[in-house]
């Protein structure tokens, strides 16, 4: 009697799991419209791309873009729900269905493209290495046998693991910890996206971006869950429209310019409509 009960229970559980799994696959774009809010994963501690200001509001280049996308999709820029992510959980958050789109300074890599789908890029970036002014690192050769600070799961982490095994890596989960470690002298330098480093070095006297271009030029793009063609197609069209309309120039002026200053040329970061076609 009891065995039968357990069997029925197990069957029921299996059915529940199976049906829940299949239900999710249906039209995501409709699902978002029906829900009435777009769930966007953004950073909460990475100014000027995604951060929370002193009033507790999300701000930054990615956040402004997210609001624009929500406006174009749902007719209201406030119909966006921000999911605050860490660099290491950007893929998980999509795969688990906790967010519809990731706008979190997400660099396109082959490895990541196997796990999530990237839309057209909205920024471009290379790696850089920031170091103390007194002992500047201007060449990768200087790093041999030394300790370099990186963020776990970022492009910098992959690049040095793959191409420079002679460099000792000290990995942190979060930006705050990584930059504090550099200030404390736990490594001779810190490798990260050059865009982020330009901003950080400007705000932190005594540090220079000694290497400002390393590795290949990478694209920063929105990511959606795999096999979510509908939302992906819509996003691609949206990025094209926004690029042609000069939205990203405006976004740059509002969020990045105050941080980078005029020392950085916006063209090194933004894509032209022609570049986008490639």
């Amino acid at each position: 009697m009891r065995d039968k009960f357990v069997l029925v229970l197990a069957l029921f559980a299996a059915f529940a799991i199976f049906s829940a799994g299949t239900l999710r696959a249906a039209g995501e774009l409709d699902a978002i419209k029906k829900r009435g809010t777009l769930r966007v994963a953004v950073f909460s501690d990475k100014p000027p791309f995604g951060f929370v200001n002193e009033n507790g509001d999300n701000e930054g280049y990615d956040v402004l873009l997210a609001k624009k996308v929500a406006e174009d999709l749902l007719g209201d820029p406030s119909k966006v729900e921000f999911v605050l992510v860490e660099a290491a959980s950007r893929i998980e958050v999509l795969q688990a269905g906790k967010a519809d789109i990731v706008f979190a300074n997400f660099t396109v890599t082959d490895e990541r493209a196997k796990q999530v789908d990237f839309a057209l890029p909205y920024m471009k970036v290379a790696l850089g290495v920031v170091s103390p002014e007194k002992a500047p690192i201007t060449d990768v050769a200087q790093l041999s046998g030394k300790t370099l600070i990186v963020n776990k799961g970022t492009t910098a982490d992959f690049y040095f693991t793959e191409n420079h095994p002679e460099v000792k890596l000290l990995k942190y989960d979060q930006n705050t910890e990584a930059f504090n470690a550099l200030r404390d002298g736990r490594g001779v330098g810190l490798a990260h996206d050059n865009t982020l480093l330009f901003a950080w070095a400007r705000e932190n006297p005594g540090f220079v971006t000694g290497i400002d271009f390393l590795g290949s030029l990478d694209a920063i793009a929105p990511a959606v869950k795999k096999d979510n063609g509908e939302l992906l197609d819509w996003l691609n069209a949206e990025i094209e429209t926004l690029t042609a309309a000069g939205f990203f120039q405006k976004d740059y002026e509002a969020t990045l310019l105050p941080v980078y200053g005029d020392t950085v040329d916006p063209k090194t970061v933004l894509l032209t409509p022609e570049e986008l076609k490639k």
């Binding site: 951060f51 002193e54 605050l84 860490e86 705050t176």
Partner: peptide, 28 residues
């Protein structure tokens, strides 16, 4: 818990350090 996107005391502190730290070097 902030690894599952739940902003507890520690995470809020970090967010504040990142923004205020740009101007205030003792923020952390």
């Amino acid at each position: 818990v902030f690894f599952i996107n739940h902003p507890d005391l520690m995470k809020v502190g970090q967010q504040i350090v990142e923004v205020a730290g740009m101007r205030n070097h003792l923020a952390s």
